[in-house]
């Protein structure tokens, strides 16, 4: 508003002397040289702060002189600065959360190697992609010993891999390109938790959200629960099975632990389906033992405490229940 006093014609442009432009240019060149040289020193943790400081100085020169901001309307500087402030807000909160979200996991445990994993060597995709087929075939040839890098990590990855996000890919779950990716390990972790007190889940959309937190799977977690049957001796499993029958667990949970016992239909809270690995309050042996001893934390549930069964027997039942997971 304030500059209206002049007529239609010229408002005098603010012309900077040539020396400023060339001075800034040489400064930028020298700073570029410095930043390249410094990066070759291998400064480790200091490298990023130094590189960013140099970049900020360069940016300052460009904005201040090439873009005239130093000599222009103050409001322009304010607006420019505000964009930087909001960028800072965005970075600060997100980075803060990123750092504080979970305990640090070494990257080898979380990285996903597409060459070993399914999306990369998915037969569907390979059909129209010769170059990739070649890579996959080579990878396959190198076989069980794993190739060049990260062979050890691959096994862990394979376990972590098929957790939440795999809905789309799960369909093509034929034994994957490499034998080192044991499909059976992958299976049991997939089923989504069935709704508890809430009504039937419709289709996918709601499921998309709950997966998020689990989605950076800290690899070790699923592993121990994954191979249950092998861990327990046959004797205690047989005892557990007998106790399961004797204590009428089957009336609700069904003969094969599928949650389809005769009484199940009438219950407001549906019994757990052990065959699907649906241990509602945790899938470890201890968790199951706890529910058996104390009853379900859900008060609406018909799963009351079975504390009257002797301690040893309760452990046997728990082991048996864990072994039911297919």
């Amino acid at each position: 508003m304030s500059h209206h006093k002049d007529s239609h014609g010229s408002h005098e442009p603010h012309v900077l002397p040539l020396s400023i432009y060339f001075g800034v240019f040489f400064a930028l060149m020298i700073l570029t040289y410095i930043t390249v040289k410094v990066s070759q020193l291998g400064l480790g943790a200091l490298a990023i702060p130094i590189a960013m400081t140099v970049a900020l100085i360069k940016a300052g020169f460009v904005v201040g002189y090439f873009m005239h901001l130093r000599y222009d309307d103050r409001f322009l500087s304010l607006f420019f600065a505000s964009s930087i402030v909001f960028l800072g807000v965005f970075f600060a909160f997100t980075v803060y959360d990123l750092g504080a979200r979970d305990t640090w996991v070494p990257e080898e445990h979380t990285q996903v190697n597409l060459i070993d994993g399914k999306p990369f060597c998915d037969p569907e995709i390979l059909k129209n992609n010769d170059r990739r087929k070649k890579v996959c075939d080579e990878a396959k040839k190198r076989g069980d010993h794993g190739h060049g890098h990260g062979a050890h990590g691959n096994v862990v990855k394979a376990a972590a891999h098929p957790t939440p996000a795999k809905r789309g890919v799960a369909k093509v779950a034929q034994p994957a390109a490499r034998p080192a990716t044991p499909a059976p390990v992958a299976r049991p972790t997939t089923p989504a938790p069935a709704p508890v007190a809430r009504p039937t889940t419709p289709a996918p959309a709601p499921a998309a959200r709950p997966t998020a937190p689990a989605a950076r799977p800290t690899a070790p977690a699923p592993a121990p629960a994954a191979r249950p049957a092998a861990q327990f001796d046959a004797a205690s499993l047989a005892a557990g099975k007998k106790l399961y029958q004797a204590n009428a667990c089957w009336t609700c949970h069904g003969n094969e632990g599928k949650g389809d016992g005769a009484a199940a239909a009438a219950l407001p809270v549906k019994p757990a389906n052990f065959a699907l690995g649906n241990y509602k309050y945790g899938g470890s042996l201890g968790d199951i033992y706890k529910v058996l001893s104390n009853g379900s934390p859900n008060k609406a549930s018909g799963m009351v405490a079975y504390a009257h069964i002797p301690d040893n027997d309760r452990w046997s039942i728990a082991k048996y229940l864990l072994s039911l997971k297919k």
């Binding site: 930043t35 390249v36 990066s39 070759q40 291998g42 400064l43 490298a47 990023i48 590189a51 960013m52 140099v54 970049a55 360069k58 940016a59 460009v62 904005v63 090439f66 873009m67």
Partner: peptide, 19 residues
């Protein structure tokens, strides 16, 4: 155009010089 330069000033060290 200066903005394009400005962005490259940050892209270059972050991508090429991260040692």
């Amino acid at each position: 155009w200066h903005l394009v330069d400005l962005i490259w000033i940050f892209l270059f060290p972050l991508l090429y010089l991260v040692k």
